[in-house]
């Protein structure tokens, strides 16, 4: 067949329009706006190097999970158990490397396998029994949280890689003057890899098809159940990695670790424009969604909002950002 080029002759104007009308632009503008506003309100504390460094670590821990969540939500499912899975894996790493003296790299590999198995269980129950993932993962969230609480008896399990295993600590959390914050590099790596797989790989095509129209995908020979289980496993594994990062940073495991992270990650993905009904979403949108929730969390602290009000304002702002996002999105589609 002769070669055909259907993409030629794209004028600068078309290119400009494509960039300006990209959905991510809306969330990008909100991200930038929040940065400027909080920088101003906190008189520069917010945009200082120290705060940015802390935010980079926090954004990375949330963001890794959010990247996995983007895949799962595009496939049309949901996972409320990511926080508990990250805690389960953190517990495994803390016990193995902190108490049993296992090499922490090996401990982390085992923790990630545990996370993938936990994700796979979620996926199999959802696919085989046809139960909504919202309900299944609500259940497994309590289950895994119960398991780590019972196993640790609610006690602190120390694990101080910064002192005992510096190589491992650097691998996950170093802040190197030459290349910058390592957690951020992990996060950006996940974004690049996630974008490549979602938009340029066969698997990404199957994920969009599964979430966009499951019957059509099935009729075209896509194994939609397998796609969903793989998305659950991917998210489980990446949540485990994030959990290992947290437990190493906090120098120990406590049974409530990661209990907030699941809702924050879901909020970030939704703000980034991924549909909770499946079939639509981008990793770049998620990146900005993660930055937005991180800026809100830290911006409110930096502007010295009273601790009593913090959650009220944070919750309200997340809703306001969604409204602004939808409003701008409506304007954009009319362009």
């Amino acid at each position: 067949m002769k070669e055909i080029n259907f993409r030629g002759r794209r004028t600068m104007l078309q290119l400009f329009k494509k960039v300006v009308t990209a959905r991510e632009l809306v969330v990008f503008v909100i991200t930038l706006g929040l940065f400027v506003i909080f920088g101003f309100l906190s008189r520069g504390t917010f945009s200082s190097a120290e705060v940015i460094e802390i935010m980079a670590i926090s954004a990375s821990e949330i963001g890794l999970i959010a990247v996995g969540m983007t895949f799962l939500m595009i496939s049309g499912e949901f996972d409320l158990s990511v926080g508990a899975i990250s805690a389960l894996s953190a517990y495994v790493l803390a016990v193995m490397a902190g108490q049993m003296g296992v090499n922490p790299f090996l401990g982390m590999v085992i923790a990630i396998i545990v996370g993938m198995v936990a994700g796979g269980i979620n996926g199999l129950v959802v696919v085989k029994f046809g139960i909504p993932s919202f309900i299944v993962t609500l259940g497994t969230n309590w289950m895994w949280r119960g398991v780590v609480t019972a196993a640790s008896r609610g006690l602190w399990i120390p694990f101080r890689p910064i002192e005992t295993h510096p190589a491992f600590y650097k691998f996950l959390l170093a802040d190197l003057p030459s290349i910058g914050s390592v957690p951020l590099i992990w996060f950006l790596g996940a974004i690049i890899l996630g974008t490549l797989i979602l938009n340029f790989h066969r698997f990404g095509n199957h994920v969009f098809a599964t979430g966009g129209n499951r019957e059509a995908a099935k009729a075209m020979g896509i194994k939609t159940g397998k796609v969903k289980v793989l998305c659950f496993m991917l998210l489980g594994g990446i949540s485990a990695f994030s959990g290992c990062m947290q437990v190493s940073r906090m120098a120990g495991f406590q049974s409530l670790q990661g209990s907030q992270i699941m809702l924050v990650a879901i909020a970030a993905v939704a703000i980034g424009g991924t549909s909770i009904y499946g079939g639509r979403g981008t990793i770049f949108g998620t990146l900005f969604g993660v930055l937005i929730v991180t800026f809100l969390q830290f911006g409110l602290i930096m502007t010295k909002v009273s601790g009593w009000w913090y959650k009220i304002i944070l919750g309200a702002l997340i809703v306001v950002v969604m409204i602004v996002n939808n409003f701008l999105e409506e304007k954009r589609t009319k362009l």
């Binding site: 340029f200 066969r202 199957h206 098809a209 129209n213 995908a217």
Partner: peptide
């Protein structure tokens, strides 16, 4: 058996995507 939110080309090849190395489209 088409997915509205996907492009014509992606729908056309759904389930039989032509790939290069490593499964990339």
């Amino acid at each position: 058996a088409l997915v509205d939110l996907m492009s014509v080309a992606r729908n056309f090849h759904m389930g039989r995507e032509p790939v290069k190395w490593g499964g990339f489209l």
